[in-house]
Design a protein around this nucleic acid. Structure first.
Lengths: 317, 317
DNA sequence: CTGAAAGCGCTTACAG
DNA sequence: CTGAAAGCGCTTACAG
């Protein structure tokens, strides 16, 4: 591995000047810079991230905090974490997964995900003194999130454009921000629509069985929907089961749409038309954000990024 | 953060002696060691991994190689990687995910997974000059793997102990080691069993649809099995679909067992009795192994670890 | 059994 | 616009 010294020796400049070409090139005379840059390219020199971190008093460690009450191997978070890990690795940072509240330990920055609302105040406070990002949304803290609103707005418009007019929304019975956003997406889409719509709202816990029961009961009544727009894939699978059990067919009698796109949509029968969330990309965005914060010494304006979703077209709609 | 110097100052010994207490304690007089250890504890001193890596000429980077033809977000590998990541992070190493063949770049060690048989020779060669571990099995290279043999042996014995005597084995139609191991587990279990057994073997590609077709055709014939022991969960789900489509019920008419336990077992109806593979643990074992290799300067005897599986009891058997 | 010196590869003031 | 000096926190020979 080539070092600064090698480049310095080869070009006749000092190590300091070479360092400057890398870190603050505008402080170097253009001609000098060109010579040094050529030599850097020739020797394929890459700065040693360890030495840099050492001298800059950094640890090169990023804590990623996932509350202990969330499954360690929850596939959703696993995808995000692996997106984070990819970028962090490239940049010479270590990712350290934490399952209990991070307080005052030794790291360059923290990424939080799956925060409860009580945690949010703590995270905000911490963000004042240390680079912090959240997956989700906390007022005043840089964040990356899936655009849940846009997702269900998109799906609902798609449903309407396919001619469906009797819609049931199967929502999640929990006071969480992403859940409200999804419902808002649905509501705004139907409100934008002119002409008569028949709407119905059902709520259940976010799992298959709960959805199965709620939908099963609702289908007993004779206000049969043409489509059930679900707030999650697990619920959509429960809805499909309930529909089939009535001797009805999906999507012929009742269509169903999901939200998540993490794999189970392929296992359902029929396969689920759903919203795909690019959570791996979200992880990468989080990593880039935390690195930018670190390099700016936590002096960047708060930035909320919402990542757009897309529809995964399958057979349930 | 306390440093070696702080401990040295507080105890009156030199930085070198403190360093020795941490790295080669047997070279330090017992009394000295006790004093220094007490001070280390009192100040909660942790060596700076960056400084150590710098002086030892390491990068603190571990490459994890997953061939590009495997889905980047394949949940199986994701679990392994996150197990690796947990341990590596704790130890101050960075994990760098590679999707193309690693050759001669700058890292302290490599972990390979999902290797094709052509790659194995390259990996073996590399392991002679650099710390290398594989997930799976390569002759002469340290490895960690799921005990596929033990898994299907365990499941088949369980099936037999439940009184089933007409078994169909639904195997995977591909020449891979883990596939042979699973089948061997099945074969050894049935061979150990005294008394009359009716056996049948079916093969398909490792996906739901292929299994669905093969099982569907086979059930037309009148040699109906009591149970289908499948080599994967995806295939088991296909088998269940085929069985149900004949108007039969699982497990009443035909029972089904799977192998993988990565989540889809819960989505199936009935939920799948299957083999759970502790792949997160496998990841952790890989990380510990590669670190040990690095610290021994690649001078450890080759070690193959096989991690035991367990049965996940659900309703399909 | 313990320590003084040199150095890993880099950056940060300070000088000129 | 460029460089000499000092130092980040640690380990590695070498000496005693």
């Amino acid at each position: 591995m080539a070092t600064l010294k090698d480049i310095a020796k080869a070009t006749g400049f000092s190590v300091i000047t070479v360092s400057r070409v890398i870190n603050t090139p505008h402080l170097v005379k253009e001609k000098t810079r060109a010579i040094i840059e050529a030599e850097i390219a020739r020797q394929n020199f890459k700065p040693n991230v360890l030495a840099r971190a050492l001298v800059q008093n950094r640890t090169n460690i990023i804590y990623v905090y996932i509350p202990a009450d969330i499954d360690a191997i929850n596939p959703f978070f696993l995808h995000v974490v692996s997106g984070i890990g990819e970028v962090l690795g490239e940049q010479g940072f270590s990712l350290l997964l934490k399952r209990t509240w991070y307080n005052n330990e030794d790291c360059d920055g923290c990424i939080f995900m799956g925060l409860s609302s009580e945690d949010e105040a703590k995270v905000f406070a911490l963000s004042q003194i240390k680079p912090v990002c959240v997956f989700g949304f906390v007022e005043g803290v840089s964040s990356v999130d899936i655009d849940n609103y846009q997702g269900l707005f998109l799906m609902t418009n798609h449903v309407l454009s396919r001619g469906y007019r009797k819609l049931t929304y199967l929502g999640i019975d929990e006071p969480r921000r992403f859940i409200r956003q999804r419902e808002k997406g649905f509501n705004d889409a139907v409100m934008n629509k002119s002409g008569e719509l028949t709407l119905n709202y059902l709520y259940a816990k976010n799992n298959e069985n709960a959805a199965y029961k709620v939908v099963g009961n609702s289908l007993k009544q004779d206000k049969m929907p043409e489509v059930i727009v679900c707030a999650s894939d697990d619920m959509a699978i429960g809805a499909i089961r309930a529909i089939k059990e009535k001797g009805l067919e999906v999507p012929r009698d009742v269509a169903v749409t999901g939200f998540d796109g993490l794999g189970t949509q392929e296992v359902a029968h029929p396969r689920l038309t759903t919203i795909h969330q690019p959570i791996y990309e979200a992880g990468k965005a989080l990593a880039h954000r935390i690195i930018a914060l670190i390099e700016s010494k936590n002096n960047l304006p708060t930035n909320h990024t919402f990542i757009e979703t897309t529809i995964l077209h399958r057979e349930s709609l």
